[in-house]
Write a protein that binds this DNA or RNA. Structure first.
Lengths: 345, 345
DNA sequence: ATGAAAGCGCTAACAG
DNA sequence: CTGTTAGCGCTTTCAT
């Protein structure tokens, strides 16, 4: 239970939060503040009996160390910042969840920043993040704005970019190749005997690279030009449904669609079902992400599986190792992907 | 562009991060540190020309204020902690997104904590949060553990509980009544002429209250006892599908199901479709949450709509007002809900 | 194994 | 409007 700090008569001219401090604990235990600090941070440096006395005092006072003060004094905030484009129904949440879990177990806290807000806010997001002096920064996707890169580089804070591969990462990287995915999905579809491939994609740089490689591979296989429907920023079931409509107008003969997200693909499946288009007979559909629910849809969606949890875990390890001065075993990891074949192909 | 701190010959015995500090900026601008501080925090207190000089120095040095130091000195961290049970495919993400957005615009940062991890970790989560001295805490759901309540109360940090109503909130509250929902959905279904109601629910306290009220209202209307299928912790399409199977074994005559989440409901719809059960002819289905994609499913899901974004926004406002010493207009708000009728009823 | 001193980088108080 | 002084609560450094 909390108690007000004893009203000592020492000269005190400043406020303060009024909470129990290490000083209070130390006084109660009859030791110097630094000793109490050691009990909490490096107990092996303190004799057992002193240790116990301090622990008792902590218990009695309900003391919770002020990490802002600790961070300021040690230049180690034990804070990790994560930047995510969007959280709602996003394929990234599994990554964030495992990132957070791994960090928490190692004694780190997660700060969340959303980049999907206007580009002008990206600047202030970076400022806000750097201002907290996090021990590491987790980026969803790679940073392209040169300004942002420079700023992060200048801050000296360890950075891990994820969900992508780039020849010139800012620092560390845990991702996979979007081009490889585009190529492999095209090969996969061609191998299934599909001849008129199409892509339905959101306006997203990584989706663009998948689309690009997808189209190139189709062409290399001697197929007709891949039709592409761009749905803009929205990646919903609804836009997937509409996109299929548009696609069928452009090319009624299309026999396979690769979508840039599972949600879009679900929309395509839905629309095809409504129109009585046989899946996979007349139309094959491949999604991207393998979010939890698409495996249980009927028909179950064939999609590109990304191990998002692995990305979060590995990125966390990179960041933690760096923060604690350890050598990072592999600062550049390709987690790969797999094409999961289910009912729609 | 960053530059190393000038190697001054003043007595310096301690390290430091090596970053630019307010002192550096002030020196460059030829003013006292506090003046530079004022330019950044209360510019109206500083003359225009001095202001400009300092701003120039900030620009030149690429100075980013250390918020840990600022927070420590002012006892205001400008940090808000949010506790969420789960992030993956969760109905709460819209709330978190708007919470985060509103906070960010007001100059606050969001720290994310996950409570879904084991109960033993709940204790350390709270410790970790309080240790950061956030200016406010956002709770998804209400806190029931007495220990946790006491601890939060003792910390003196403003707390807002959400997504629920309780007669005895820790502090502030932005939510809605789960009992009301259960009752209203039952009435709604009865009004539609349904006579054999059932519930498929996850093992979750709030879902329990909806189920309870749902059953009571059904009984009040003279219907047969409501059959309840509990799916445990999982709230996936798959468990929804399985649950409908189990439900039909228990009561093949059931004509309406209220599910404790949209995902579960989607599973029920899917399974019904597979079994050739006519929706809504033979079976009516109601979900909960109105997550983005259920409106575009076929058939579109009837569900209970909760304005998650509103909850986030309002909770943020409560917390910010409190943090800034303002009176909170309405510390207890009921955002209500609405039953959205679509194709499944 | 324990402690004294000196800050980390910033801002509240109180001048002037 | 600007500055001086004294910390916020903790940990590093250097002694003992």
């Amino acid at each position: 239970m909390p108690q007000t700090k004893e009203s000592d008569n020492t000269r005190r001219s400043r406020r303060g939060s009024g909470a129990i401090t290490l000083r209070d604990v130390a006084k109660l235990a009859g030791v110097a503040p630094i000793t109490a600090s050691r009990v909490l941070n490096t107990p092996e440096q303190v004799s057992v009996d002193v240790r116990q006395k301090v622990l008792d005092a902590v218990q009695k006072t309900g003391y919770v160390p002020n990490r802002m003060a600790g961070g300021l004094a040690s230049s180690r905030s034990r804070l990790i910042a994560a930047v995510v484009p969007s959280t709602v129904m996003s394929v990234f949440m599994e990554t964030i969840e495992s990132l957070n879990g791994t960090l928490f177990d190692a004694g780190y806290q997660l700060m969340l920043g959303q980049s999907s807000y206007s580009a002008s806010r990206e600047e202030s997001l970076l400022e806000a993040i750097i201002g907290r002096r996090p021990d590491g920064i987790f980026l969803t996707g790679v940073l392209h704005s040169g300004k942002g890169r420079t700023r992060l580089l200048a801050s000296g804070i360890p950075v891990v970019e994820t969900w992508d591969l780039t020849p010139a990462p800012i620092d560390m990287l845990v991702g996979f190749s979007h081009s490889d995915i585009g190529r492999e999905v095209a090969k996969f579809l061609v191998g299934k005997g599909r001849r008129r491939l199409a892509m339905i994609r959101a306006d997203d740089e990584r989706a663009g690279r998948r689309a690009q490689a997808f189209a190139v591979e189709a062409e290399r296989s001697g197929l007709a030009k891949v039709q592409v429907v761009d749905v803009g920023a929205s990646r919903t079931i609804k836009s997937g449904r509409e996109a299929l409509g548009r696609l069928l107008e452009i090319d009624p003969e299309v026999d396979a669609v690769f979508c840039s997200s599972d949600l879009l693909a679900s929309g395509v499946v839905t629309e095809a079902r409504v129109r009585g288009i046989d899946i996979p007979g007349r139309l094959a559909i491949v999604g991207f992400g393998d979010v939890p629910f698409v495996a249980d849809m009927v028909p179950a969606l064939s999609t590109v599986h990304i191990n998002g949890a692995d990305i979060g875990r590995m990125a966390a390890r990179c960041l933690i190792d760096r923060a604690e001065g350890r050598e990072v075993a592999s600062p550049l990891v390709d987690v790969g992907f797999s094409i999961v074949e289910r009912d729609t192909t």
